[in-house]
Design a protein around this nucleic acid. Structure first.
Lengths: 205, 205
DNA sequence: TTGCCTTTCTGAACAATGTTCATTTTATTT
DNA sequence: AAATAAAATGAACATTGTTCAGAAAGGCAA
């Protein structure tokens, strides 16, 4: 019987369709406008059908947030063509910042919105795989830096977390409109300027 | 006529009462449970009355967020008894982190929730006074550090923003449950450990 | 084809929320 | 005591996520 197989495929495709539609709405109109009804409207199915394929809205937002990590991760992968770990680390920072500022809503979903994490809690998942994987990429590079003699006296995990926190903090404050109090000549580049300060700090010795 | 005066005072007091009740609910039950109805219930007035004193929920949340900045600011003030600017800078970091971890919901409201900023936008306010004032306190200390010969080659504003971003990033990721991917011996102290790494970085001669 | 069963889909209905505003209640002034 | 002003009310509305009994569609055996 190829029927069961076909049905499974159709199910999978409808799930994909829901997700595509959700993503389109999310990117175009933001998280607020991405309602279950608007998704259902867009794919021309009823509200109830959406709930057949996703247990709740958190599940949809978690799936979207995972897509964000895939996108960011594939950008990071490219950077492993850079042999020098310090140079790669700098490039990762730039890429991260660019990604955040070009996709603010997606960035919010990945790193600040509660929904994706609530989904993990609700499904009793211990680990935040998406974040862990991406963080491991950073750690790998930091580790190579340490092995190359940089960051003498530092420790891998907390140092990596510190670096991540730094770039995240800048992006988070900027996207969250918390940079109004920081008066610069060119406020639009505050994040890049601050990152330069960090590079200056770690390049010193 | 002392009537008008008394009325004004009564109005002010009811406004305060609403805010106190809102804060209590906010601290005890979090932002989600702080609904207009629950506030109205708590002060034994009707829903409509709340709207007589606050244009909308954003206005209430903005007022609460301002209280948070007052609290944090008064903790910072104490630190100006520390003469050495570098030591004061370190202490500010500790105080900031402690404040964030001890008042996660308030911290969220101050630095990540959109509502307070939307209130500013809606009321056509250009500046984010609360944030600016607190950031100025940091800048003052960083400036003194620069004048004392530390951070050679750095620039005040972006350097200050970088430091703020660093501590904010750590707190933000921790509170937002994004530290699940960072496996440490003692995960509860990840923020402090990462801050130590930062201190190690800036203390290098 | 017909009738039965399973799967899929539907959309009305519910609860919770922010918000509004015509009406009522209370207070003040004349 | 009446008239006026101010303050408070709460029913009603729109919008959300969510549920679930029933309808529709699809597959399968007689």
């Amino acid at each position: 019987m190829g029927t069961a197989e076909r049905k499974a495929r159709e199910k999978e495709e409808l799930k994909k369709l829901i997700l595509e539609s959700a993503k389109k709405l999310f990117v175009e109109k933001g998280i607020e406008q991405t309602t279950i009804r608007s998704i259902a409207d867009a794919i021309q199915y009823s509200v109830g059908t959406v709930y057949v394929y996703f247990r709740d809205k958190n599940a949809i937002l978690h799936a979207l947030h995972a897509q964000g990590f895939t996108a960011l991760g594939s950008q990071f992968k490219v950077l492993f063509n850079v042999a020098d770990p310090m140079e790669r680390l700098r490039a990762m920072g730039r890429v991260y910042i660019r990604f955040a500022l070009e996709n603010p809503d997606m960035y919010d979903l990945m790193f600040t919105v509660k929904a994706p994490m609530e989904f993990l809690n609700d499904t009793n998942e211990e680990e935040w795989t998406e974040g862990k994987t991406t963080f491991d990429v950073l750690k790998t590079t930091v580790k190579e830096c340490l092995e190359a003699g940089h960051f003498a006296g530092h420790h891998l995990e907390p140092l990596s977390f510190m670096i991540w926190s730094l770039v995240h903090g800048m992006c988070s404050l900027y996207i969250g409109q918390r940079t109004k109090g920081v008066n610069l000549e060119n406020p639009a580049t505050i994040v890049d300027q601050a990152f330069d300060e960090f590079l200056l700090l770690i390049d010193k010795p």
